[in-house]
Amino acid sequence: LEARLEQANLLKKVVDAIKDLVQDCNFDCNDSGIALQAMDNSHVALVSMMLKSESFSPFRCDRNIALGINLTSLQKVLRCANSEDILTLKAEDAPDVVNLVFESADSDRLSEYDIKLMDIDQEHLGIPETEYAANISMPSAEFQKICRDLMALSESVAIECTKEGVKFSCNGDIGSGSVTLRSHTNVDKPENNVEIDLTEPVALTFSLKYLVNFCKASGLSGQVKLCLSNEVPLLVEYGLASNSYLRFYLAPKIGD
């Protein structure tokens, strides 16, 4: 494997966003790119990252390899990069280590680190292709604020999507609260758009603790996409350049 990423910061942000959810992960490398799939310990949430080969320049992967990496170790090394550094990831066949080289774009500094790999026996889940009943795009900062605000009142949030809009509501010991968003187009700042694409009304309840955790990815993308269908996990997607993405799936809360 040899993969050069223009922005070391991108991988750093991804790792920062997922490392409280999952600890040891396989980075599956093949000629289409670098993928990661992992559930949290309680099997409530699933992280799925895809960095397509087009996100790297150049990208070369001659044989499929799984790089088992502890994310705390990876985070430590990625913190050694300067924010504008270029990152090259390298691994040999049947590797013991993954090699990270940081290059400064405007100086001649070159730093190099090896991280020891681990054998991770990870269960891989098949995620079915789903036509969701509701697809919502909104500013990622807005979604983060809603989740944080409602978590002050309750452990759970009900997300209801109708043709009127999308309503986030909660009920707790001190009282209740709700935030409703309607479709909204801002021509000057498309990042502020709220788009709701609904084929049938949806109502589901989710744990706010996990949603707040997912929102650590807000720095990766100005917009977040929420996809919901009744009785299936919520998909929270942060789109990255070149069709790469960071996705989180969250199992709903269900009636007893």
């Binding site: 559930m39 309680s42 099997h43 409530v44 949430a45 699933l46 269960e123 891989h124 889940l125 098949g126 995620i127 079915p128 759970s156 309840t205 744990s207 299936v232 996990p233 799936y249 199992a251 709903p252 809360k253 269900i254 009636g255 007893d256």
Partner: peptide, 14 residues
């Protein structure tokens, strides 16, 4: 009262 379901209830091992 509601309880938390898990992901493996919806997505099966590949």
């Amino acid at each position: 009262k509601s309880r938390q379901s898990t992901i493996d209830r919806y997505f099966s091992p590949r």
